[in-house]
Structures are given as C-alpha cells and as structure tokens.
C-alpha cells in the first residue's frame, strides 16, 4: 500500500510540471494550428540559462526564473515572427512546412548549446536538491513539492489571463476562429507572436523548476518535446484544461510503469498511451471535459 501511495505521490508531483509543459504546447497548437517540435529544446535552453547563472554567479534556480522566463519569451517571439510567420505566405505543397521549421529550430538550439557547453552532463545541486519530508510513510521531495505549488500558481495565473484580460480573450478568440477574430479587430499576427512567447515562457519556467532534480545535457530537449505532445494528444489539441489532465495522467502512468513494470519501460508507456488515445479517444480528454 505504501508503495502504491508513494508512486501516486511522485506521479502527481511530476504530473504537475508536465501539465505546465503541456499547456505551453497546447496554447501554441490552439492558436497556430501547428505542433511545435522545438518545445522541449526551448526548455533545454532555459535549463542552460539557469545552470549558467547558478554555476557562474551562484544564483538560486528559483530566483533565476526571473531571467530565464523573459529570455525564452523573447526567443519565442523572435522564432514566431522571423521564422514561422513568413512561411504562412509561401506557396508550398505541404502545409507541414512550419512543423518542419520547428524541427530545424530545435536542432539549431540543441547544437548551439552543445557547441557552448559540450555534451557533458551538468547538474545544479542546491542544498535542498535531495531533501525530503515525510507525511506518514510517504516521502515528498522538497524541490518537487515547491515546483508543484509554483506550477499550480502559474496555471491559475494563466487561466486568469486567458479568461479575464483583453489580450487573453483575443488569444482564445483566435484559437476558436481566426477569421472571425480578425473581423472583430484582433491583430492575429500579433496574437501568434504573443502566444508563442507565452507557450515558450511556460516551458522555460518548467525547465528552470526541474533543474534541481534533473541532469542536463543538450539532447534532453527531444524526450520532453515528445512528452509534451503526448500530453497534448491526451488532453485534446488546443485544450488547456485537457493539458492539465493529460500532464497528470502521463506523470502517473510513468510513475506506475516505472514502479510495477520496470524503469526501462518508462518511455514506452507514454507512447503506448499516445497510440491508444489516438485510436480510442481521438480528441483526447477534450471530448469529456468539453473545454
């Protein structure tokens, strides 16, 4: 029973961060209609920023959120404005060109980081990295618990932004019906930059939060990109509420898979869920939650 509860807790804590990563991708998906395959790579860049700040200036990872998030937000704006939007105007056979462009961007980001930091594993070990506290027999990792709380705060702030502010409403309007939004006076191009920026900022925050408990190397982006789209598919593309469910489900599935089936199956489980959802619940949790 303890083992079960312990697995449940660690799955939930991980799931909270996965939800943040997934929401970032699903926002971009909703507004742009494309899958950003450089999502995990953006996170990797943010992790390197945090690492450099910690290693060379001794800045605490939680403080460096203030640097990494705006930096990746700007990077996202740039990528959307300079690289992705021009493709919309080009005459091509395949509509997937934008997706391919994000693959290219991901490669470039990975290789820039490899060029600067080499392929060596880096880690940020703070005083609280491996500290835990106990509730009953269940251990909670301190950094992961803090991360979970911050993730909830960020998600709440994002929903407030999307529901209450003018800009947030424009984002939702563009996602629902781009042409109608343009007719209502929404500058849809501007919305695309901002959305890409926000999506990137969210994943950047997740990266910075994860770094006290993760190793860091240039290729870490790929697996997280894959996790992000598994979450999006689970939740239903474009659904922020669905992404929360998707993130938590993936976190739980990975935790239970690793405990009961073996560590080496951790990566397969996500993919199997992905295929199953595509087959039996196309549209993901969005079909159930309707949001």
């Amino acid at each position: 029973m303890d083992l079960f509860l312990q697995t449940l807790v660690s799955g939930l804590l991980k799931g909270g961060l996965y939800a943040v990563i997934g929401i970032g991708m699903t926002l971009i998906m909703g507004v742009m209609g494309i899958i950003n395959l450089a999502h995990g790579q953006m996170m990797m860049v943010s992790m390197y920023i945090t690492y450099s700040l910690f290693a060379y200036a001794g800045v605490d990872p939680y403080v460096s959120l203030l640097v990494s998030v705006p930096a990746i937000f700007t990077l996202g704006l740039f990528i959307q404005q300079r690289l992705l939007n021009p493709l919309l105007r080009a005459e091509t056979i395949l509509p997937e060109n934008q997706v391919l462009m994000t693959v290219g961007v991901g490669m470039v980001l990975t290789e820039i980081m490899r060029f600067i930091f080499t392929s060596d594993y880096k880690s940020v070990r703070t005083s609280y990295s491996s500290s835990t506290f106990f509730v009953g027999n269940i251990s909670f990792s301190v950094p992961l618990t803090i991360d979970f709380l911050i993730a909830i705060l960020m998600t709440a702030a994002l929903f407030l932004f999307l529901i209450k502010t003018d800009l947030g409403r424009s984002v939702r309007a563009t996602a629902q019906d781009k042409e109608a939004a343009v007719l209502m006076g929404v500058d849809s191009e501007r919305i695309t930059y901002i959305t890409f920026g926000i999506g990137s900022a969210l994943v950047a925050a997740a990266g910075t939060l994860l770094i006290p408990v993760f190793y860091l190397y240039p290729d870490i982006g790929g697996p997280f990109t894959r996790k992000a789209f598994v979450i999006c598919i689970l939740g239903g593309l474009g659904s922020a509420v669905g992404a929360i469910f998707g993130g938590v489900t993936l976190g739980l599935a990975e935790a239970f898979g690793a405990t009961y089936a073996g560590m080496e199956f951790e990566d397969i489980i996500g993919l199997v869920i992905f295929l199953l959802v595509l087959l039996f619940l196309p549209g993901g949790f969005k079909r159930i939650t309707k949001v």
């Binding site: 690289l83 021009p86 493709l87 080009a90 005459e91 091509t92 056979i93 060109n97 391919l100 462009m101 693959v103 290219g104 961007v105 490669m107 470039v108 990975t110 290789e111 820039i112 490899r114 060029f115």
Partner: peptide, 25 residues
C-alpha cells in the same frame, strides 16, 4: 568540425525559410 551539426541545422532552417519547394521545385 566541432559545430558540424550546428551548420547542418542552420542549413535546414534556411532551406525551409527561403526554398520551401526545394531545389527542383
């Protein structure tokens, strides 16, 4: 030599950006 993969990636981005239909297209 050290940045060969980087150069390759940049090429990918440039090709998709400026020649979306390829050399023959």
């Amino acid at each position: 030599t050290k940045g060969h993969a980087l150069g390759f990636g940049i090429l990918v981005v440039l090709v998709i950006r400026y020649m979306p239909n390829g050399v023959v297209g």
